[in-house]
Every structure is written in C-alpha cells, then in structure tokens.
Write a protein that binds this DNA or RNA. Structure first.
Lengths: 221, 221, 221, 221
DNA sequence: GATGAATGAGATTTCATTCAT
DNA sequence: AATGAATGAAATCTCATTCAT
C-alpha cells in the first residue's frame, strides 16, 4: 500500500528522550518534519509549515529540536530507526535459503513502496553527501545487522549447495535494495519518460517478481 | 573518471537558442546552475552563487532565463539532453546480443559514475514529482529511443535462442539503470552505513561485473 | 578585593517585602538579575538566564516581580540601597577633616572597585536617561545624605583654616566619584588603548594615592 | 553645544572603503547605527530602526555591514576615529605648559559634552568588556598619540620648573578624562540624586573651571 | 548587454510572557 | 509556591527579483 503524504512514527524513538508527558507533541512535530523534509528537501522545507502541520508553533520546534538542521537530523535518525526496527522484527526461514532471500527481497521492496518518505529522505541525505548521517552515524539504532543476516543466508545456501560461493553480502544487499529503491525513487521521471504508472498494484507485484527472479538467478548455483 | 563538482556542457544542443554572440555566457550560467541545483536542490540553490560561480551577476540570470525556476528547467533539459545525445552516439553490435547488452550496461553505469550531477538532478526532480520534466516532457530531445534499442537487442537475442522470451524492455532497462543508479546516488549513505568507498576505481570495476553478471543471467535462456 | 561576576545582596533591606518564608528565592532571583543586567544591559538581559542562574524558572520571575522591567527596577533599587547603607555605616573623624576626606575617598573608590556590578548598573541606567531611577527616586533608601556629610567636612576644614572656602560639596563629591568611577567603569577600553591592567592590586593602590593627592591639593587652603 | 540625538560623521572614515558612489548610504546607515547603539545599547538596538532612520531597509544594513555585530563594530571604530582625528588637529602651545594643559582639558571636556553618543558608546563597549575594541584594537586610527603629547607637556613643564616631577602621563590623562567623562556619562543619575542640571551652559563652564583648577593644582610644583 | 545598488517579502530564530497542572 | 509547556510578537537575517545607469 502506498501512502504518499507521509509514513511516520517508525522508531519507538527513544532517540532523544527528555521531557516527560508531552512526548506526543515532539512526536507530532517530528512526523510533520519528516513529511516536510521528504517533500521539499532541506532547503525547501519551511519551519512554519512543519509547525502548522503539527498544530503547533515555530517556537515549539526550537524548544524541542534547537534548529531546523537539528530537526532534520532527528527526522533522519527516526527514519533510519524505523527501518532498522522493522528489519529486527523480520523472521527468516534459515532451513530454506531460497525462501529466506525471497522474504528479504519482498520486505525490502515493500518497505520502500510503503514508505516513500523514507526513500526521499535517503535521496535528500545523499544530495547533501550524508554529512548528517555521518554526524549521527555512531548511533546504535542506525547500524545494519541486516547484512549479517544476508551473509548467514548466503552461507547456508552455499553449504546446502543451493547457492554459488563467492558472492559478497554487502554487494548483494545493495543490488536487492537498488532494484526496488530506484523503482520507487525515480518513478516520477520514469512515468514521464516511459509513460508507465509504476506504483499501480499489479505493476508493483510484477516488479517484485522481476527483482526476485533476477536475484535468485544471480545467487543460485 | 569521477568528477564530483560538476559535469556540465552535455548537449552542445541549442534548446533555447536566440542571442548569438554571448552564448558563452548563457552556457556558463547554465553550467553553474547545474552545479548549484545538483548540489543544493531547488530550494537550497542560490541565484547569487550561480551568478558568482559563472563570474557574472544576478541580473544576467534574469536576463537570460527569466526566473530561478525557469533556470532550473533549462538546467534539467540540458542534463537530459546530455545523456540523450550520448545514447544516440552509442553503437551496438547487434550480431552479438550478449555483447550489445554488455555495451549498454557499461555505458549506462559509467555515465552515472562520470556524471554525478546528472544523478543528483534526477533525484531532485523526482523529489519534486517530476513536475518540471512533465512541463518540458514533449521536447524531442528528452524522448528515450534507448528503449527501442533494448527491445531490438532482446528480440535479436530471443531469435538467436540466446535470450529467453517474455522479458519486458522497459522493465529490463529500469533494472539496468537501477543497479548502477542507486550505487552512485546512494553512495554517501552506503559509505556511512557499510564503510565502503563505492567509487574507488576497483570497486567500480567490480560493481560493473556484478551488474553485468546479474543482468546476463537474468536474460539468458 | 575585586569580584567580577557579581556583588549582590547589598541591602539586607526589604524594599518590597511581602511573602515571608521563601524570601531567599526572591533574593536569589534578584542577585541573578543584578548579575544579568549589569553584564548585558537591559535589552541584552534574558529572563531565561536570570531564572536559570537562580536555579529557578521564568514563571517565578513573573510571580515575584511582575515583568522584566519591574525586575530591573528592583535590581536598581537594591544596588542603590546597598551603597546607601554602606555609606550610612561610614564613620568620619570630624576632628581631622583631612583624614575624613581620605576616609571618604578610600571608601568611595574601593566600593566601586569591589562592586563592579554597581558601576555597570549606574552606566546602564544612565544609558537609559535614568528613567527608572526617576520613577523610584522618591524612595528614602536612595537619598544621599553623603552630600551633607561632605558639606560638614568641608565646613569643619574651612573653620579650622585647613581647607579653602568656596568649594561646592556636590561638585566635590562628583569629582571624588568621577576619579574612581571612570577608572573602574572604563577599565576595559583603557586596557585596550593604553595596555594597562588597571585593577591589579598595586595599580589600585597607586590610583587611590593619585585621587587622594589630587582632591586634597584641591581643597587645601 | 550639546546635541543629544546623535553626533556622527566623525572620522573621515576610510575605515572600510569599498563600494564606489553610494558611500553616502553606508555613511547614513553608520550614523543611524551610532545613534541607535548609543541610545539603546547593543542588545536593545533594533536593525529595523537603524534602517528606517537612514531611510533605507534592513537588507542594506546586511549588504554593507554583514551583521548587527559587525555594524556595531564599524560604529565603534567610527566613533573612536572621530576623537582620534580631532585630537590630531589639536595645537598645543608648548612654550606655556600651563596653557597647554588648559587646552587639553578644555578640548577633552567639551568633546564629551558635545558628543554624548561617544560617551555612551564607550560605556556600552565597557559593559561588554571591550571585546569589540580588542578585536579592532590594532587599527592605527584607534591608537592614542594623545598620551605622548601629555608626556611632552609634562616634560616641558618639569624642565621649566613649573610642574612637579614624577607624574605619570597615562594616569594624568585618565584623571583629566574621568573628571569630565563621568560628569557627562552619569548626568542623568546625578540629576535625579542631586537635583542639578549638569549640562546647563553655566554649569558646564563652572565644571570646566573645577577640572582645570584641580588638574593644575595637582601638577604644579 | 552588463553591473552594482536597492527592495520587500519572507525565512529562521529569539524571547517576554502566560497557561495548566 | 512551583514547574515545564506553550504561545505570539518581534527580532535578525536571507533571497529572489527589479531598478538605474
């Protein structure tokens, strides 16, 4: 399911903690900020709009986050915390490496499809050379144990003779990610250039088949 | 070779034409604009900086382009005109579909690697829902005959029994693009999260191998 | 002894009185306010900082003082009450007018040296045309019986043939004050312009000699 | 003659130079800034008012001076450049040290009386610990050759047997300055406390007599 | 065509003050 | 009495755009 506007409240947060009761207001501002930054980029985002969307006022933004840039940072962390915790909840059937890969592919692709704000935030952050992520890069919530899981799946598959050896886990993960990420990220220009509505439900399902097929053919022995 | 800063002057084209002598100044402003927009996004771009980088002044920007938005549009068209004309110069060995696919993959990947500003502009345009591209979408310079070429290669391969049938040309092209595009586009966040310098020369070569391998395994019968 | 930071709690007074138990909190806020106003001026003072320095919160400031301006007024009164009560405690040896003048000079100079916040508050109040002091000018705590004492000393000295007649008490007091006040008040710019640390202990002692010498030569017959 | 409001255009400027024709506008903004800062202090000054008083707009302030603080710095330098150049134009009759001292005293006192904005700026700068002056302290326009002149006068007087030896030139200059400076600087609080209008014409003349008398008695052999 | 000055709208940020508990 | 949250007005600063020459 695609929800353009936003897709916030991902991480159980806890990233900053602090104040007592009105954590809900901080949360509302953060959600609004994610929507805003993912819609307009950093330079185009307006603190005014962020406050208004959260039914609050600009001063609250500064009260809770200090500055527009710090707010962006908090939004970025939250967005990453969201996918991280979703990944942590993922269950792989290690007895069936092929199924495990399918699970990973489907999860990853649908996460992008369902969280366009996540996709845009990543793009925005890359536009800025990932300097903010660097600054926050040591936060444990951002680490990606997912790669260890990919490695484990690959190892199992190789041991079982199903997968071929010599495949780099990070490189594979980048490929899985890329095949879905660009599909979501670039859907607007692709629509204009190729005339296809990529996020139509059947289109999504077909794309998932392509990605799964492509990755499995790549790893299979 | 990667050149961060910019990578302008793509189409010798003449999308707007007009004045004759000081076309070089228009060109300089356009190059500067591409650098600026691809570095800061639309909202973060500064007309002042664009003018200064071109050793000119703001009034010239307005003289030549009318407004910041129109300048962005011109930059976008220029960027697309660049890849279009490069694609037009591409030669495929149709007698060897496998080689033809390799040629396409390498060209596409290296174009992204060598033109990071192109990649960023695409991302920026998608952030904005491709509204500017839509507005300029009927320009002949932007159409993508590349897809027809992919279709032709696929058809040849199927006819020769080398490729399996049923592969959608656009979908395949999106995959080829995606495997390289995200690699370049998201390299900063990937570097922070995975600790790898994706644009080191050997890394690029290895990635090209992965992409080629993956696509060929996917299309081969 | 010089104490930069602050020098509050001058009058144990009770200019406003009122609540009984947590008078210490009012006092803490007032001390903090004196530090703040004397450091940043009225416009530069921050209610937030005043509250924080007193380990309290802004609402308390408003609870006790009503407004920032009223707080400034209270601080000003407190500061003047402080010197007034110190002056009241001064003992002059009227039998020796020369010694009495020396006592006055030393007291005055050292009071400025020891109470830089007092000096800054006076300057701040003068910057604002003394409108606040005017508003509070009828408070008995602010009247200056010191001038009557100067007059008495002068009269005694003239009667004893030690001092020359015709010296205006207020004018003399202004001179005594000025020679020390500016030395303290302008020490920062004087340090930059002349490269001398005016508040070094020996410098202070030497300055006191100069002032005493100058005033005595002026009044002596 | 006292002119409260302002008293600008002191230094032949040249402190920053730059732009061509519209130096008059920069000058107007600077004059307005001097009025504003000397009236409200740094924290109380309003960029809006500064622009409006100069019949300009805020953006021009930032165009010419960069920031409110830099504008304050420029104003401070201008103010100091003003007294410096007036001092440079002073002529002393070195054949008559007593007259020379009189000249210096009268010039100094009347400069304060006639330039209340100068006095207030000095006070404001001292309130802030002279950090701005320190930052600009190496500008040649700010050095004080006046002290060398005082020394020369003292030396002549001592050589002629008119003045007593052992008087420190800087200390003497501080005294001369102090006796007039505080009189002008603190006139508002002194008016409230003592009920005298210190800047009435006759009061000024009488005060000049006091200062002259006091200094001469101090230096004479 | 070209340039520096000028401007007004609007952006981010601050801060005195009040509210709810 | 005491506290943290909330707010609106206003302050500083920015920037796309236009003007005058």
């Amino acid at each position: 399911m695609t929800m353009e506007g936003n897709d916030a409240t991902p991480g159980g947060n806890g990233l900053v903690s602090g104040r007592r009761a009105p954590q809900w207001r901080r949360r509302a501002l953060l959600d609004s900020a994610i929507t805003e930054f993912s819609t307009y980029g950093i330079g185009g985002a307006r603190v005014d709009r962020i406050a208004a969307r959260a039914s609050s006022n600009k001063a609250m933004v500064y009260h809770y986050f200090g500055s527009k840039e710090d707010l962006y940072l908090a939004a970025l962390q939250d967005i990453y915390g969201g996918i991280r915790s979703a990944e942590d909840r993922l269950q792989f059937d290690m007895a069936d490496p092929r199924a495990a890969i399918r699970t990973l592919i489907e999860f990853t692709f649908r996460y992008y499809v369902d969280h366009p704000a996540f996709v845009r935030m990543i793009n925005t952050e890359n536009l800025h050379g990932a300097v903010h992520l660097s600054a926050a890069g040591d936060l444990p919530d951002l680490s990606r144990p997912i790669v260890a899981k990919v490695q484990a799946i690959l190892d199992h598959g190789v041991a079982m003779g199903i997968f071929r050896p010599g495949i780099d886990a990070i490189d594979l993960y980048i490929s899985i990610s890329a095949l879905g990420f660009t599909y979501v990220s670039n859907r607007h220009t692709l629509r204009v250039l190729f005339g296809r509505e990529l996020l139509a439900t059947e289109a999504i399902d077909r794309r998932l088949e392509t990605i799964t097929d492509m990755i499995l053919r790549f790893v299979e022995a």
